[in-house]
């Protein structure tokens, strides 16, 4: 299963499932990365981590380790 970590800059995807537990999972969901949400990966930070993506109309940054908790589907190049 592909995760948000594998999505390349400039690609769009849809969240299919969240793995992980506790604070990190809840926080990712609270910020709008829930099942069915469309995510556009906008860029990677200068040092290669974290990443910045657009979700629900705003800019969200998260670490690659956390992006790994987000399983995605329908990866398409924008």
């Amino acid at each position: 299963m592909a995760t948000l970590r594998d999505v390349k800059v400039g690609e769009t995807c849809t969240v299919s499932k969240l793995t992980g537990t506790g604070a990190i999972k809840r926080r990712i969901m609270d910020m709008g990365l829930t099942k069915g949400a469309k995510v556009f990966v906008r860029k990677v930070a200068p040092l290669g981590d974290p990443i910045e993506c657009t979700v629900r109309g705003y800019e969200l940054s998260l670490r690659k380790d956390e992006a790994q908790c987000v399983e995605v589907a329908d990866v398409t190049a924008a």
Binding site: A23, I24, R27, I28, M31, E52, Y58, E59, E66
Partner: peptide
């Protein structure tokens, strides 16, 4: 404690 998430808004 719990790992601290770095899931952060980049405001306009």
């Amino acid at each position: 404690g719990e790992p601290v998430p770095f899931v952060m808004e980049l405001p306009d």
